[in-house]
Amino acid sequence: MTAKQHIALTVNGRRVEAEVEPRLLLADFLRGTLGLTGTHVGCEHGVCGACTILLDGVSARSCLTLAVQADGSSVETVESLGSPEMLSDLQLVFREHHALQCGFCTPGMLMTATDLLRTQPLATDEEIRDGLSGNLCRCTGYENIVRALRAAAARRETTTP
């Protein structure tokens, strides 16, 4: 067993320090060590996107990232968006459009959507679908997720100067 390593990072705006095994996945660190179980693990090989988080502001697979690789970084998870009592605009638009069913892919979808809305024009459905194509959903047929993102992109247009 390799010796544990010290890491220090920011998670959802809070500074976190821990001693971790070098092989510990970031997803397991978030879920097991920090109790942030909103990040879900769906495939452990980087395909399904359920574990998507923002690493230094960019969407990343926490099942393909080691906790030690996040040393010195800033991590944002679904818990950073809003609470059940006070959902964020993006979460509200998902609810309004019924863009979730079982909810397992939803945290990853929300984090991918956060990244897409920050960086992509999302002017057409095709762009939205391409942007979402790294996140699998088995319940919704994507239709209502696309509609939610279309609405979120349109709202962004009207609210940003």
Binding site: L36, T37, G38, L81, S83, L87, G103, L110
Partner: peptide, 19 residues
């Protein structure tokens, strides 16, 4: 009707077995 389940699931506060 908007779903009762949504707020907890959207906020990452669902309770799946692994949680």
């Amino acid at each position: 009707v908007r779903r009762v389940e949504d707020p907890r699931l959207l906020a990452g506060q669902g309770s799946y077995v692994a949680d």
